[in-house]
Simulated assay, not measured.
Amino acid sequence: MPPIELFDSATYSIQFQVNSEWRKVRVRAADTLLDALREGLGLTGSKSGCDNGDCGTCTILVNGLPIKSCIMLAVEADGQQITTIEGLANSPVLQTFAEKQAFQCGYCTPGFIVNCHGLLNIHPDANEETIRIWLESNICRCTSYEEIREAVKSVFAAHSADGAS
C-alpha cells in the first residue's frame, strides 16, 4: 500500500478498491468515508441518516465486513476493499428484497441489503436468532421490519438450498 499523499495542509489523496475498481479521491483529514463515497466518487446509494453510527443507512462493506461509513474516517479506508450498494446491483439479496417488498420509503433499504451481505459473509448458516440480532444494527423508520426479516430469511433459505445441492 503506497503512503497517503499529502497535497496541501488540508487534503490527502487516498485510494481504495470500490466495487472491484481501484479509485483515488482527495479528502480532508476530517472527512468520513461516507463523504468520500458520496461527494468524492458520486456513489450516493449509501445515505446519511444519523451521522453517529446508530441507524445503519450508510452501511457498506470494508473487506467484507459491514461498517457504518458515517463514523469511519476516509483516510482509514486507504488501501481497503469497499463494497457499496452500487456494487451489489445484481445481487440476489437485492432481488429478494424487491420480491418480498421489504421496503416502504426505501431510505434504509441499501443499508439493510449491504448488512445482509455482511451477515452472509460472516455467518453463512445464520439461524433466526442470529439474523434478528444482526438486523438490530439498522433502523427502518417506516417499520417494515417484518418484511425485511422475511426477505433476509428467504435469502438464507435460498443460500442453504444452493449449498445443499
Rank of each mutant, 00 (worst) to 15 (best):
G56Y: 09
G56Q: 11
G56I: 02
T57N: 15
I60V: 10
I60G: 02
I60F: 02
L61K: 09
V62F: 07
V62C: 14
N63Y: 03
L65M: 03
I67K: 03
K68I: 00
S69P: 01
S69F: 02
I71V: 14
A74Y: 03
V75T: 07
E76F: 14
D78Y: 04
D78R: 03
G79C: 01
Q80H: 12
Q80C: 10
Q81T: 04
I82F: 12
T83Q: 13
T83E: 15
T84H: 07
I85F: 05
E86K: 09
E86R: 06
G87F: 07
L88D: 07
N90F: 12
S91W: 05
S91P: 04
S91R: 05
S91Y: 02
P92F: 14
P92N: 09
P92I: 06
V93L: 12
V93W: 08
V93K: 10
V93A: 15
L94W: 07
L94G: 08
T96H: 03
T96W: 09
F97R: 09
A98K: 14
E99K: 00
K100D: 02
Q101C: 05
Q101I: 11
Q101W: 13
F103A: 10
F103K: 06
F103W: 04
C105V: 15
G106R: 04
Y107T: 03
Y107R: 04
Y107D: 02
Y107E: 06
C108D: 11
C108L: 08
C108N: 06
T109P: 00
T109I: 10
G111W: 03
F112S: 11
I113D: 02
V114F: 11
V114S: 05
V114L: 05
V114D: 04
V114E: 06
V114P: 09
C116P: 01
H117W: 11
G118C: 00
L119R: 12
L119W: 05
L120R: 08
L120Q: 14
N121C: 11
N121S: 10
H123M: 13
P124G: 08
P124F: 01
P124S: 13
P124N: 15
D125S: 14
N127F: 14
E128R: 13
E128S: 15
E129P: 00
T130F: 03
T130P: 05
R132Y: 08
R132Q: 09
L135Q: 11
S137A: 15
S137T: 11
N138H: 10
I139Y: 10
C140P: 08
C140F: 01
R141H: 07
C142N: 08
C142T: 01
S144Q: 08
S144E: 07
S144F: 04
Y145H: 15
Y145T: 13
Y145D: 06
Y145Q: 03
Y145C: 11
E146D: 08
E147V: 04
I148N: 14
R149L: 11
R149H: 09
R149T: 14
E150Q: 15
E150D: 10
A151M: 07
A151K: 12
A151C: 09
